[in-house]
Design a protein around this nucleic acid. Structure first.
Length: 295
DNA sequence: TTCAATGTTTAGAC
DNA sequence: GGTCTAAACATTGA
């Protein structure tokens, strides 16, 4: 389920608990999740053995994020990349606390039948759960191998970094005849947006998601640009939209879900103008918008 | 029973 | 080459 804010929140929450810890043991219950990405995965025993051999005894130095990927960096320079896709979830658990993120947790029992990998750390456990099993975990021997892999080649700018600037964004939009929503979902244009936040951004900018990109005015593009930054930052501050049973170290819950203006609200009234929100399919995804506020 | 679900890739048509 | 659609991955729940 996670989009950028959910992955970033998970990264921030997890880091203090796993940083400096060593992987003592790895149990792979679903080998296909570590063999490749979802499009080309093959069951492979040797991949599992390599994964276990290379990452056991490694000390976690840092967790970074690129687009919707989590990147575990080990002291040796080795890398573990995790993509949660639709329903992936990571849970850290020790004797006194549990930190989870990604797909909302329904089953607090760990491991459960959707647990596909278990890392035993020097203190506590890290579980990878995934209902639909679209996610994957990939090992890279070093940063260079990761960067030269096809994983990062196609990514556009990070929306919250200076790389993401209005000029490039405008050029990129104005060069396209495609519809706005599929374009914003395209990770080559800007990374991190998914179905929830694209709809929220379009609503913020008061622009219909089925507008042709080339038809956008400069002020409209500026609104989209600002909306992307504002909405993603706000969502990260609130720990994203996936908050069911999200347990932080201090026991607090956060949540952007209740700030959704359009996503998941088809048929309900617009919070601004009281008109009924409509829903259409764009790029194969359900899209909710206000026919009155958005033009 | 049928459909849709916070992601991404690929194949085929125009 | 660009862009659209549908399908694929696998499971759950309305």
């Amino acid at each position: 389920m996670p989009e950028l804010p959910e992955v970033e929140s998970l990264r921030q929450s997890l880091l203090p608990f796993v940083q400096g810890k060593t992987i003592k043991k790895i149990q792979i219950l679903k080998p296909k999740l570590i063999s490749s990405n979802s499009a080309t995965r093959i069951e492979s025993t040797s991949k599992s053995q390599e994964f276990i051999k290379e990452l056991t005894k490694e000390k976690i130095q840092d967790i970074q994020r690129r687009a919707k990927n989590l990147i575990f960096i080990f002291e040796s320079g080795k890398i573990l990349l995790i993509h949660l896709k639709m329903t992936g979830q990571l849970v850290y658990k020790n004797h006194q606390t549990q930190v989870a993120g990604g797909h909302p947790i329904h089953n607090l029992q760990l491991p459960n039948r959707h647990t596909h990998l278990i890392f035993t750390l020097s203190e506590g456990f890290l579980y990878y759960n995934d209902i639909r099993q679209f996610g994957y975990l990939l090992y890279f021997p070093n940063q260079k191998k990761l960067e030269s892999s096809n994983h990062f080649k196609l990514f556009g700018p990070e929306p919250l970094s200076p790389d993401f600037n209005l000029k490039k964004f405008s050029t990129s939009l104005l060069s396209k005849k495609a519809l706005l929503k599929p374009t914003l979902l395209d990770q080559k244009v800007v990374v991190g947006l998914g179905n929830i936040y694209v709809d929220e951004v379009c609503f913020y900018a008061k622009i219909l998601p089925n507008r042709i990109c080339q038809s956008l005015s400069r002020p409209e593009i500026k609104l989209l640009f600002d909306g992307i930054k504002k909405i993603l930052s706000r969502a990260i501050a609130l720990k994203g939209s996936t908050v069911a049973n999200y347990i932080l170290a201090d026991g607090s819950h956060g949540g952007y879900t209740k700030e959704h203006k359009v996503y998941g609200r088809s048929g309900k009234v617009c919070l601004v103008c009281n008109q009924t929100l409509k829903s259409i399919k764009l790029g194969g995804r359900t899209t909710v918008y206000c026919p009155n506020c958005q033009q």
